[in-house]
Design a protein around this nucleic acid. Structure first.
Lengths: 338, 338
DNA sequence: ATGAAAGCGCTAACAA
DNA sequence: TTGTTAGCGCTTTCAT
């Protein structure tokens, strides 16, 4: 069990110097005579000495650990953000504790263990507005939100340019000749849902189309919710020729519903998604969608956070990342075959 | 910046006891007079004292942190395992550092930082056989593999019963009357690929069907590889009526290839997948597949690891988890319409 | 049941 | 340039 790793003092003894000199060597401090450095390095190699990270954290008062909290870890979007954050963090010598918090209570618990017990130096919160969980974050603790600052907490954030993205998608459908465009929203409280919907309305307005509330349905990001929304619309004989689903999963659900009703996509109805998830090009039909560089969001968040930790006085520049549209086969020019 | 959190001594001073008594209280040590305990608890509440996790790690020589390393964090399978591990770990007071290591070199780096610098108490390695990365793990460090022990390192592991699963899938196709069953393998070096293929052969043997090497194609888990494999088979006019794809993504690719060639699934060809990924029921046609409780694997791995950390002498019981088949619409009885 | 002293392995401040 | 002395905030003996 106790293989008793060598400590800084063991190295010092072997090299015939003080432990402080060893500390200087491992911290690349200038003020060490080259000779001494050599001796110390030899001793380090000889003993295969590795500094203990916990002891360093203790002495420095910094853990070099960040946490990433998301509603879950499996959703492709969340996982990509975490992956991006992890890469950026690693490159800068930080590690990421990733945790999922299904609800506000478990989020609050997590915050106590992570922030209260001082396990981490900073925090990335993915979807901070879900069940108002952001309220549980202590003020002044270095934090970055993934998802924007609409609720006006004074922390930094990164997000997609969701409004522009929503507008882009809908404009594309309008350009194809569609006028009655149904919108399937994501979870109401997610900031991006609101922004994408804003973009949807804006595109319609600019094309002088009235924004009809009956065409705006609420989903919850699952395929099933997209399916249900379209089923309902069809049963209630709501008139539309195209669908803007605020994520790909709901788009898939929508397509299935349309098909179950005997319609063809894109011949009878056009459907555009959002995310460009990995299998989007393999769906039937291949999905026209909004592509986002989701990995990049995680990278940005980590970078912003690390900067904030090391330069607390400096203002954090929150910002939005651009998206682009990927044309595939689930959309087509309007026609009246329905 | 320096809000100077209260320490155990601040609490002690306020409560009029020694800091050691405070330590006893926060560690639920029996030997504290109820009165004293009350006083101390009052002081703790008053100061909102929270013990510093790093200092505890330091004093105890345990970090209460585990690491989970996978080839990436976004693959649904990996993400689910990590999520399961994280849940189990949290329930037992541990945290998970999740990291991705694309190749053996970055894996080796990670091991040094995590294990060498003693940042973690234990390690979960997902897909340890990829590029022989498992070789970089120091002996005797508490480790659990997700994926089996075929290469005979003496560590514990959890895995699916892949051989039985492969057999189950193929037997199902045989029962539908198929005799020429094409197999699309995953990455060769993954233990599960070998086991699933073994199951494939076994099912054929038991049905007295010769196991034809020309029907076994190698993929790399991506949809594209499944697509390519089937394209090649079709172009070379290899005769088959059903496909066993070793994961759902390759199954999707296979279906698209078949369709691009003008065939219908399942009318002309049956396709069975593996994983039952979230959207499997929304594919077209809904995918018949092998369902695995992948989250559970992560839970098991974390539990085994924590047990091993706390009872190092006790032997770890590696084991396999069962699967079951989900019948959907991508498979049908054999017919000769092709 | 409680306290005093030592130590976990490092860094930081000061002296030499 | 190097060494000495103190911590960092806890837990772990060992007394009392």
């Amino acid at each position: 069990m106790n293989e008793s790793h060598p400590t800084i003092r063991d190295v010092a003894r072997l090299a015939g110097v003080s432990h402080q000199t060893v500390s200087r060597v491992i911290n690349n401090n200038e003020k060490v005579k080259p000779e001494t450095r050599k001796k110390v390095e030899a001793a380090i190699n000889r003993l295969d000495y590795k500094p203990n990270a916990i002891a360093r954290s203790m002495a420095r008062g910094k853990t070099r650990t960040l946490a990433c909290i998301a509603p879950n870890l499996t959703d492709y979007t969340f996982a990509s953000i975490i992956e991006g954050a992890e890469q950026e963090a690693r490159n800068r010598g930080y590690f990421i504790l990733s945790s999922s918090a299904a609800d506000a209570d478990s989020f609050a618990d997590l915050i106590i263990e992570l922030v209260g017990y001082r396990r981490i130096d900073g925090l990335i919160v993915i979807n901070p507005y879900v069940d108002k969980r952001y309220e549980h974050i202590p003020d002044n603790f270095p934090t970055i939100f993934v998802g924007d600052d609409s609720n006006n907490k004074n922390v930094g954030w990164v997000a997609l340019d969701d409004e522009a993205a929503g507008k882009l998608a809908v404009q594309y459908l309008i350009d194809l000749g569609h006028r009655e465009i149904l919108c399937i929203k994501g979870i109401e409280t997610d900031a991006c849902t609101q922004d994408r919907t804003k973009g949807y309305c804006k595109a319609l307005e600019e094309a002088q189309i009235k924004c009809d509330d009956r065409l705006i349905m609420t989903g919850d990001w699952t395929a099933t919710s997209g399916y249900q929304d379209i089923m309902n619309a069809l049963e209630e004989k709501i008139s539309f020729s195209a669908v803007f689903a605020q994520n790909d999963r709901m788009a898939i659900g929508a397509i299935r519903a349309l098909r179950d009703f005997g319609y063809q996509v894109p011949d009878d109805y056009s459907v555009i998604g959002f995310d460009d998830m990995p299998l989007a090009s393999y769906f039937d039909p291949p999905l026209t969608t909004i592509h986002q560089d989701i990995n990049r969001i995680g990278q940005e968040a980590a970078l912003m956070l690390i900067t904030k930790i090391n330069q607390p006085e400096q203002k954090t520049n929150s910002h939005r990342l651009p998206v682009h549209l990927i044309e595939r086969k689930s959309t087509a020019p309007f026609n009246d075959r329905r």
